[in-house]
Amino acid sequence: MGNKEKGKQSRRKFLQNIGVAGVGAISAPAILFTACSSSSDKKTKVLTPDNKLIEIDSENGLAIDTTDKSYLNKIGREGIPGKKFVMVIDLGKCRNERKCMKACQSEHQLKPEQHHLNVLEMENPSSGQTYFMPKLCQHCDNPPCVTVCPVDATFKRQDGIVLVDNERCIGCRFCIAACPYSARTFNWTEPRDSEEYKDITYNMELNVPQKKGTVTKCAFSADRIREGKLPYCNSACPNGVYYFGDANEDLVTNGTTKETVRLSKLLKQNSAYTLMPELGTQPSVYYLPARENS
């Protein structure tokens, strides 16, 4: 029985790994336009979304303009197939250095009082000890902000990320009222450096340029993920607070050490929790509690 179980497990693991590789290959959209090098000058081999290797003319086939607005809008709304992005925040490691906040605000064209990510000083009610808690959009699986949006300006993608389309948003702020985590912020006046950004094509995944009279919030750095990189805040953290990854792969990578660990194990061993689970929002952000005297 024991052996059988083991065999089953290893087979499952093997299949899982294959699956991971396959999913990774399909989902990395870069592969759609970065072709495998080929001997011929004019022909290029590319992998299609349905996993077929085809040869195309390199001149025609590579004609996708990645700065084209309708293209950016399309991929921004669709998300990355086969993924379920999650973040893990180790509260024991946060020293309130706020490098994450700075990186976030500079990438997303935010003013000092606008927070996609806000490091809060919290108090443990039983011990009275304080700890620092980076709070960002929880990318809920049952997002209250998305249900109340009257115009589909904020939406949930297939990869779990909740985004805002600031060219659709009418500025009613119902989502701000509905979010129990106060994760959203509004452009009450002209956004920071709006003159500088005015000719840039709008990228939904970065939500830049920001627009006056619209809502903005954490995007899990969807633009960075698309390039296969970790979110801005994760990379900026000097203390190894953040892990980011794909729950389908069950792997998350630490933003500071770049160490990759099993998500399920990390959550289980550190008694991870989510914020206000009683509300039924089902967040995609997990917290590892701050340990006493750590």
């Binding site: 109340v148 115009v151 300006a153 659709r168 009418i170 119902f174």
Partner: peptide, 12 residues
């Protein structure tokens, strides 16, 4: 946008 993109589940 409310008329073009209106979503029926929003109380607005």
């Amino acid at each position: 946008h409310v008329f073009l993109h209106g979503r029926i589940q929003s109380p607005i």
